[in-house]
């Protein structure tokens, strides 16, 4: 029972921050899809199924948050690179603000409880 609750909670938490993390990964750089997945995979517990990232990228492209460019590769087929659009950068800034506010709020709650 307790385990079910915790699993469900971590799943919901992960879903919410994964979209933010995808945009954050692209901040100030252009990355290939596989690179994005690998970088997100380095964050412990963030990506359970690597494939989850691709529908998010597709949705961001449709929403105009990211744009793609095909770049020829020496190692195989042309690679599709993602980068943030001005709309995506604005959205990322808003998400960062919201994330910091929530994090600070929770930290202060924890400090109150600890003191």
């Amino acid at each position: 029972m307790e385990s079910d609750f915790f699993d469900n909670w971590t799943t919901q938490l992960r879903k919410g921050i994964l979209e933010f993390s995808v945009l954050a990964t692209l901040r100030g750089r252009r990355l290939y899809g596989y690179d994005i997945v690998k970088r997100l995979g380095n964050v412990p517990g963030l990506v359970i199924s690597e494939g989850t990232v691709y529908p998010i990228l597709s949705r961001f492209k449709r929403d105009g948050f990211v744009t793609t460019t095909l770049v020829e590769s020496n190692e195989g087929p042309a690679r599709k690179y993602y980068e943030l659009t001005p709309v995506g950068r604005r959205e990322l800034a808003r998400m960062r603000g919201a994330w910091q506010a929530v994090r600070d709020g929770i930290d202060s709650l924890s400090e109150e409880a600890g003191s």
Partner: peptide
């Protein structure tokens, strides 16, 4: 059937991912 994403694009991304991972 999910209007928010492009199935063809996701399929191509997954294919690229597989080949990049196996390189």
């Amino acid at each position: 059937g999910h209007s928010s994403v492009s199935p063809a694009e996701i399929e191509q991304d997954v294919r690229d991912h597989v080949f990049a991972a196996l390189e």
